[in-house]
């Protein structure tokens, strides 16, 4: 009995001499190698894979801008740092990206933060009065949620709990992305940023800008989470490769950085 896979966007036709090799692949009805290959750019194809429709010029501009803005969070970012730790020790390159995904998946400015922010956009839209209880009482609301292996979010999604003010790159990205005819939520976020930050007591983060952009692109919370994971990988990859060349000696180790509260001392074990 032939087992099957169902797909609403991917179709293959077999080569005449081999049922296990495709002679034609269609993505949402488009012939990938016979039609799309010399017509679409990567961002258009990415959009097509997720939405099964061709993007408009405004959607391409928005997704492309976002992809550039978040492609490299930089070597201090925990997800990139994780990839670099793999590079420092000479680990497999796949493990570097897996490390970046694992660390960059979380609630603190990671993909789960974006997912949570999309849920807020779905619930509150561009209605400031709806955002107020979210920003003021986020932690209490989280305690009522079903049990999950995800840690309960500790701050309103899309804001930086360790920030002081909204950094220039976040503001620049918001300003650029909001300059788009489809950027309804981004525009609202730009116009209301000060009030939202004041209510949250926290500055806006990249994840908050990204979430608004994904909402304007019509992404579901899960699509947004997945795209955020994917689009932040290039920087992690490049930094991991750089660290692979540099090796462990030029990578932080914090040799005297552990402050152990309960150290029994060198003779502790024997003396006890």
């Amino acid at each position: 009995m032939e087992e099957s896979i169902e797909s609403a966007f991917w179709q293959e036709y077999a080569e005449a001499d081999n049922p296990f090799a495709a002679t034609k692949c269609r993505c949402a009805g488009y012939d990938v190698y016979g039609d799309l290959l010399d017509k679409v750019n990567w961002i258009e194809y990415l959009y097509l894979l997720f939405h099964t429709e061709a993007p408009t010029a405004q959607q391409v501009k928005l997704l492309n801008g976002l992809a550039v803005a978040i492609a490299n969070p930089g070597p201090r970012d925990y997800s990139v740092h994780a990839a670099m730790a793999a590079g420092a020790g000479g680990s497999t390159l796949a493990s570097a990206l897996m490390a970046a995904l694992a660390v960059g998946a979380g609630n603190l400015g990671g993909a789960r933060d974006v997912y949570q922010a999309l849920l807020v956009w779905e619930r509150c839209g561009s209605d400031f009065s709806q955002w107020l209880p979210v920003l003021r009482h986020w932690q209490e609301q989280q305690q009522a949620l079903p049990v999950s292996t995800w840690p309960a979010p500790e701050h309103p999604p899309g804001f930086d709990p360790n920030g002081v003010s909204c950094p220039a790159p976040v503001r620049q990205t918001l300003t650029y992305l909001a300059d788009n005819t489809i950027a309804e939520r981004l525009l609202w976020l730009r116009e209301n940023r000060y009030q939202l930050e004041a209510e949250a007591g926290l500055p806006l983060a990249f994840s908050g800008v990204a979430a608004a952009a994904f909402a304007d692109l019509g992404c579901s919370p899960q699509q947004a989470e997945m795209l955020y994971l994917l689009l932040r990988l290039p920087g992690a990859a490049a930094h991991a490769l750089e660290q692979l060349q540099l090796g462990p000696k030029s990578f932080p180790f914090h040799r005297h950085g552990i402050d152990l509260d309960n150290d029994p001392g060198p003779a502790g074990g024997e003396a006890r």
Binding site: A8, W10, E12, F20, G29, D31, A54, Q59
Partner: peptide, 23 residues
């Protein structure tokens, strides 16, 4: 467990051509 092309049961959009001015 290799899978043959025909094992993908497609239930999506019909065949169509990309228009270069589509975006």
């Amino acid at each position: 467990f290799p899978m043959r092309c025909s094992s993908i049961k497609y239930r999506g959009k019909a065949s169509r051509q990309w228009k270069t001015d589509e975006t």
